[in-house]
């Protein structure tokens, strides 16, 4: 079915209709952790998009060579190699971002968006479609991160795009613009802490569900863990629980 879609659709679906964070609920850990500041969100978004596009292309190119039994370890090796490259690039060119992202930069390896797209799309589709799928999903991830980070940074810290010069320098801009400061006189600090992350994510996801619901697509369709590469194992647990409960009930019957 995916092959019938035009290439443009492969690209655009990731941005809103199947937004990996807000609709497919993948990659929640980096979303919550990194969305404290917009600069970090943009940096994380670019890094993850780079890994996603590269790994999608390579996995798609190798899809006929990789035996399906060892495909997950093979995908992980490809993804981990690209993450290592991105890690080295960030360390070399944007050390401030490396400090800000800390352990979450290497953790892109286990970001389920990337493994999820490899498993659900790149392993079955041609290279051009996989490239666009990766790019669209990456931009959708970055978009969701920026939305969350904007809310948290403006309300929680009273700044916007603080420290952006560390990223703009890469593109040759040296105008000295380093973000807006002191937007709020008394920011709500808790939004930059862990509870604020969960809260803003919950509210933004509810809004996305509401908006998508208006367009006629039911939120229930895309909601939940169905798109997670680990969903099969999770559903096994639920089944296992059901079995155990049935067994307990049996002797009583």
């Amino acid at each position: 079915m995916a092959e019938k879609k035009s290439l443009g659709k492969e690209f655009s679906k990731g941005i809103i209709a199947e937004n990996p964070v807000l609709r497919l609920v993948l990659g929640t850990c980096p979303t919550l952790a990194v969305s404290v500041a917009v600069t970090n969100a943009i940096g994380m978004g670019i890094a993850a998009t780079l890994v996603l596009v590269c790994s999608n292309v390579v996995i798609s190119a190798l899809r006929k060579v990789i035996p399906s039994k060892v495909r997950i370890p093979a995908y992980i090796v490809v993804i981990a190699s690209f993450v290592t490259m991105v890690q080295l690039l960030v360390k070399a060119f944007v050390p401030a971002l490396d400090d800000a992202l800390g352990v979450y930069l290497p953790l892109i390896v286990v970001n389920c968006i990337i493994l999820g797209r490899a498993e659900a799309f790149a392993g079955k589709n041609p290279i051009a479609a996989s490239f666009l799928d990766g790019l669209g999903m990456g931009i959708g991830f970055t978009f969701a991160l920026i939305v969350m980070a904007s809310i948290r940074e403006i309300l929680g810290a009273g700044t916007f795009l603080d420290g952006i010069s560390s990223l703009t320098v890469l593109f040759g801009y040296t105008g000295g613009f380093d973000g807006f400061k002191n937007i709020l006189s008394q920011p709500m600090g808790i939004l930059t802490l862990a509870p604020g992350g969960f809260f803003v994510f919950g509210v933004v996801m509810a809004l996305a569900n509401k908006l998508a619901g208006k367009k006629g697509k039911s939120a229930a369709e895309l909601k939940g863990c169905a798109n997670c590469p680990m969903a099969h194992s999770c559903s096994l647990i639920d089944k296992d629980e059901a079995c155990k409960e049935n067994k307990k009930e049996e002797p009583a019957v």
């Binding site: 609920v25 509870p195 604020g196 992350g197 969960f198 809260f199 994510f201 919950g202 509210v203 996801m205 509810a206 809004l207 569900n209 509401k210 619901g213 939120a219 229930a220 909601k223 939940g224």
Partner: peptide
């Protein structure tokens, strides 16, 4: 709109 994951996240908060 809050059913499912959104309310779970707010509870987690």
């Amino acid at each position: 709109a809050l059913k499912g994951l959104p309310i779970t996240l707010i509870a987690a908060s």
